[in-house]
Design a protein around this nucleic acid. Structure first.
Length: 378
RNA sequence: GGCGCUAUCGUCUAGGGGUUAGGACGGAAGAUUCUCAAUCUUCAAACCCGGGUUCGAUUCCCGGUAGCGCUACCA
């Protein structure tokens, strides 16, 4: 149809025959289309290898290629930075720009972010695991996530990994961009599970293992780099959203105890729950029993702790001194003394350091939880 | 099929004609410690294959292979 005479095609169009408008690519032998890509360098292609692509669909709507170029010309775009999946299409775009009498912008194509299986990330294929909102909701810091993304397909050429926005802006250059695709090492917890309900809450659908380990690590790094005030302020809304009634002051006290223990902001909910909830969640009383001890040991420790804590000043140093002394008095190692108290007060074995924890919890709550723990041992 | 892009530890990457091929994450082991973290130390782990060029290629060139992309009246 390429050689259809104008009269004939006009006639058929007038007769109502549907048609699309195509770019008639020059077919002269040796004719080349070329452009300089800021990342991939000099690009050239034989015009003969470019097919006559559509500009207008039969419904009169422009195709992406035409619309995109028209828009760039209108807006006087000078730099086009986009995915490498457009590298081949760029030859068509150059043709369009030239046909429109416009100077093609500077192009820079970036390597693609791909899934562990090598396929490019797609909303359709990979779903919410590749959505930035998923990362945001899981508690990734914007600056950490950007940091992570920048390190995929680009590097500052020195050994820096954790970088602030300013440092990234400072160090970034198109020349240092890699040309190979980068794998985002995620694991889709929903993959293959036919039971995944679309529209169901994804709140718990994305465990930590879902995300690229390096992204997690970088996030933890950024969290540790935040001031207590900043981190506390970012944590508070999350804690409130989870239904806890926590004051700014309380949050600020808790923050230093969990700052080095959380990797994602949402981890605060599990790392510090016992600070927030008035009542402890149920736990196994066996947890109260220390190493090399039995229920009697636990009971003895809690009894002693109750006495000590009834009068000891609730400061780190006083608690440290008196509880250690108590351990010695009972003929126990410090750890054996501390564990039952920790479990009584936190509801689990792994928690922030004991004295700081008691300090924040305060005497009333501490004594009450120790009482409850003693009751569990009976 | 045609055209194009790419190829260093599992992953992200540095490097580059002669190196013990560097770092980071993750993994393993250890130190520290009231648990968990954090921190520190150590270990395992890579130049896709084949030809050239060269005194010498992981590096440069060519070919192969593989992956990816484009090849839509989808963006």
């Amino acid at each position: 149809m390429r050689e259809l005479p104008h009269e004939e095609s006009d006639r058929r169009a007038a007769a109502g025959e549907p048609f699309a408008l195509r770019y008639r690519v020059p077919r002269e032998a040796g004719e080349e289309v070329r452009f300089l890509d800021a990342v991939y360098g000099d690009q050239r292609k034989l015009a003969a290898d470019i097919e006559d692509f559509a500009l207008l669909r039969s419904d009169g709507m422009p195709t992406y290629h035409l619309a995109s170029c028209a828009d760039d010309i209108d807006l006087q775009i000078t730099e086009v930075i986009r995915g490498q999946d457009h590298l081949s299409n760029t030859f068509k775009h150059v043709l369009i720009f030239e046909a429109a009498g416009a100077k093609p912008p500077q192009f820079a194509h970036l390597p693609l972010l791909v899934a562990p299986d090598g396929s490019k990330l797609s909303k359709r294929k990979h779903g919410p695991v590749v959505s930035v909102t998923t990362y945001r909701d899981a508690g990734f810091l914007p600056e950490a996530f950007i940091n992570f993304l920048c390190l995929l397909g680009w590097s500052p050429k020195d050994d820096r990994e954790k970088m602030s926005r300013d440092e990234l802006v400072q160090a970034f250059s198109l020349e240092n961009i890699n040309r190979a695709n980068a794998v985002v090492n995620f694991q889709d917890p929903l993959a293959g599970s036919l039971t995944a309900q679309p529209g169901s809450s994804h709140q718990d659908a994305f465990p930590e293992e879902t995300f690229d380990p390096k992204a997690i690590w970088l996030n933890a790094e950024h969290i540790r780099g935040l001031t207590l005030e900043d981190l506390s302020a970012r944590l508070l809304p999350i804690v409130h959203a989870a239904g806890y009634d926590v004051s700014e002051e309380k949050m600020l006290q808790v923050t230093p105890l969990i700052r080095e223990r959380i990797k994602l902001l949402r981890d605060a909910l599990t790392a510090a729950d016992f600070f927030f909830a008035p009542e402890l969640a149920a736990y196994d009383p066996a947890e109260l029993i220390p190493q090399k001890g039995d229920a009697a040991t636990a009971a003895k420790v809690l009894q002693k702790a109750r006495e000590i804590l009834a009068t000891t000043e609730f400061t780190h140093d006083a608690l440290d001194k008196n509880l250690r002394a108590a351990a010695q008095e009972l003929g126990l190692k410090a750890g054996q003394m501390f564990q039952p108290i920790r479990v009584a007060v936190c509801g689990r074995k792994n928690a922030p350091p004991l004295f700081e924890t008691l300090e924040v919890l305060g005497r009333d709550i501490t004594l009450r939880r120790i009482e409850q723990a003693r009751a569990k041992l009976d």
